[in-house]
Design a protein around this nucleic acid. Structure first.
Length: 682
DNA sequence: CCGCCTCGAGTTCT
DNA sequence: CTCGAGGCGG
């Protein structure tokens, strides 16, 4: 570069190009060049700017992370206060809002705009002469914190707008952390032993308030702009929708899920669509915002208190809630594991009152830094199972107690940790995370073994559930699974039980009789041998044709079976070596329970060698039945799509498996094709 | 020895 | 759905 003028020209060209590619990549999400090409442009610009420091300007794309750490964040006055929004929690409340403003306007028909209410951080960005000069948090609405240097690091915020604008204007938007970025961030923090963020919102808020912009720059923050705050001079659009279009033309990132809604009747379907699909969004949304489209109507409606009358937030049913963790209890599982669970102040989440939630194990509690007495965030994972997401650290009083499992189950008289049910010694096998009750005869374990035996996937004895098992067990009518088949000799005692009439007793005994002829695989599963679940039981039943053969198998024989290694082999060996278990098997046999199976003919079934994975809801039959039919024809089923998957069967509202299948190029069939295949081959 | 994949086990509420 | 653990291939 010979002279300054030439360098300046090149620098300007490079900046324009980089800004353009930035925009393609971060705003439109459709890059035109490779990362390497982009990096090359960046490097050239950096080098030129190094050579001619007099040409360096603050809006250069190289200057996103230029600033030095601050001592404290400054304060910014909002020329036009940032208001909050009124809420509607039901369709009725939304209609009430609409009726109210219709009356005020003297007209019932006016168009609206629907947007997502992103759970992030509201910010105001000020531009002067087309350049980004100040960024501020909402704060109390009138004064916020100056976070300019942090917002500069967000690539989807243009440092300079591409065309003529009013000399000074402000736009408003919501900064958020995309869900996958949030998970990545937490994974990194876990590796570094840092406390985890409870949710993307907290993570975004924490990131944006950093004093050192270098830290913010490493957080994959994003933003959607949703309004023009004020504009000095220059014409502004007449409607909100046109404003959004205008903002897009200035390279601002505007949410593509915004919709024009011609009348209030359209709002409900927009809302419903996103109630159902919100889990698939890359950001957390807690509702939709409905706005009056015409700005002159907005003006006429004005504000009440700190809320505009022309907009309302229509909230999604809560999937998260906060409550207090009263205590951590311990339950004893079928295999003797001591399982911690959260005892919560009852809280309604997604329309259901939650009182308890599993906490998995001590490591998990530590990792999430959950303490007794904490205010915690609760959510229903996959819409169903409650889960403690994490504590709200800022609400701590200092009185919270860290959880220690061994201390929790410590028995003062015995002077050692003890099983909360039977008082036996507590063990933690080398290298394992879980603690165990050492007593196989522990009533909690014994009772749950019977429940498991009778359960649907195992011997499928209708009517023998948790409650009845508990009663029978406590009355001493059954001590182990074999006793079930001798209940018929104790009719009198059964009739003496509460809620057990002639009819119930007969039904129960019939169900028990019927269970004597279950397939061998189910019997093996029902025994409750450690590490033997549905799959492995099926596998063993295919190798051995009776329980006696399985019991006689050597360690080597077992380990020669694919997917059976030393641990599983030892577990099987140990089970059949136990005198109690041998006795149970003897009594099952004497009672007439079928413990063998004719070897299946080794014919080649039509679907053998094919693995099916199901996703979404099938119309014609429940998932379990579909799986059974596949297996009956010799096929196998998998729970996730891998390279081995032959077909992905897609029902209504498929999950992420469909994306995975597409990326792997797995063959995909719809339900109709799947049914046709079954009928044709079956 | 590490990373992937699968399987097993426990789990909430109505 | 979640996490942990077993098995296995690289």
């Amino acid at each position: 570069m010979a002279d300054l003028a030439e360098a300046q020209k090149r620098i300007e060209k490079l900046r324009a190009e980089i800004n353009h590619h930035n925009y393609r990549y971060y705003v439109l999400d459709s890059p035109e060049i490779s990362d390497a090409e982009y990096d090359a442009l960046m490097r050239e610009l950096q080098q030129l700017e190094g050579q001619y420091p007099q040409l360096l300007t603050p809006d250069s794309p190289t200057q996103r992370v230029g600033a030095e750490p601050l001592e404290a964040l400054g304060v910014v006055e909002h020329p036009l206060p940032l208001l909050s929004l009124g809420n509607a929690f039901s369709g009725e409340e939304l209609l009430a809002w609409h009726t109210r403003i219709s009356r005020l306007l003297g007209q019932a028909s006016f168009d609206l705009v629907g947007e997502h209410k992103i759970d992030g951080l509201a910010v105001a960005l000020t531009y002067e002469n087309g350049r980004f000069v100040t960024g501020a948090t909402r704060g109390d609405g009138f004064r916020g914190e100056d976070i300019t240097q942090n917002l500069r690091t967000i690539r989807s915020i243009p440092l300079a707008v591409p065309k003529d604008t009013p000399p000074r204007f402000e736009v408003r938007g919501e900064v958020f952390l995309p869900v996958d970025g949030f998970h990545r961030l937490n994974q990194e923090r876990e590796k570094e032993g840092l406390p985890l963020f409870a949710n993307p919102r907290n993570a975004a808020a924490g990131s944006v308030r950093q004093l050192d912009p270098k830290i913010t720059a490493r957080r994959p923050l994003d933003i959607y702009i949703y309004m023009l705050g004020y504009a000095e001079g220059g014409a502004t659009p007449a409607t909100h929708w046109e404003t959004l279009e205008y903002l897009k033309s200035l390279d601002f990132k505007v949410n593509p899920n915004n919709r024009r809604l011609p009348d209030i009747g359209q709002v409900e379907s927009y809302y419903q669509t996103w109630v159902e699909k919100r889990e698939k969004l890359q950001y957390e949304a807690d509702g939709i915002v409905v706005k009056v489209n015409q700005l002159d109507l907005q003006q006429r409606l004005g504000d009440v208190g700190r809320e505009p009358r022309w907009a309302i937030a229509y909230k999604f049913p809560a999937v998260q809630g906060t409550t207090r963790l009263i205590d951590i209890g311990i339950s004893v599982g079928r295999t003797g594991t001591l399982n911690p669970y959260a005892i919560l102040e009852p809280v309604s989440v997604g329309g259901v009152t939650i009182r308890q939630a599993a906490l998995h194990n001590e490591d998990d509690i530590r990792r999430k830094d959950i303490r007794i007495g904490d205010t915690v965030i609760i959510q229903r994972a996959g819409e169903v199972i409650p889960e403690v997401v994490g504590p709200i650290v800022s609400k701590r009083t200092g009185k919270e107690k860290e959880f220690d499992l061994l201390e929790k189950v410590y028995d003062k008289e015995k002077k050692r940790p003890a099983c909360p049910v039977c008082g036996s010694e507590v063990l933690q096998p080398e290298g394992e995370v879980m603690y165990y009750c050492s007593n196989a005869a522990c009533p909690a374990q014994a009772q749950q073994r019977i429940e498991h035996f009778a359960s649907r996937g195992a011997m499928d004895i209708r009517g023998i559930g948790e409650n009845l098992t508990a009663t029978l067990f406590q009355k001493g009518l059954i001590k182990d699974i074999a006793d079930l088949y001798y209940l018929k000799d104790r009719r009198e005692q059964l009739l003496g039980l509460e809620k057990m009439g002639e009819k119930s007793v007969s039904n129960m005994l019939d169900a028990i009789e019927k269970s004597k002829n279950r397939p061998l695989a189910r019997v093996i599963l029902a025994l409750g041998i450690r590490h033997i679940g549905e799959e492995t039981a099926e596998l063993l039943a295919g190798e051995f044709h009776s329980l006696a053969e399985l019991a006689a198998a050597s360690r080597e024989e077992l380990m020669s079976i694919d997917t059976i290694g030393p641990k599983i082999a030892d577990s099987i060996m140990a089970f059949f070596r136990q005198e109690e278990n041998r006795d149970i098997i003897r009594r099952l046999k004497e009672a007439g329970v079928k413990l063998e199976e004719k070897p299946m003919k080794a014919e080649v079934l039509p679907l053998s060698g094919m693995e099916f994975v199901l996703t979404g809801t099938l119309e014609a039959f429940p998932r379990k039945e579909a799986e059974d039919r596949i297996k009956a024809l010799g096929g196998t089923t998998g729970s996730s799509v891998t390279r081995k998957t032959t077909y992905l069967v897609v029902g209504a509202e498929p999950g992420s498996k469909l994306d995975k299948a597409r990326s792997l190029g797995t063959k995909i069939m719809n339900e109709a094709e799947f049914r046709q295949l079954l009928n044709q081959k079956g």
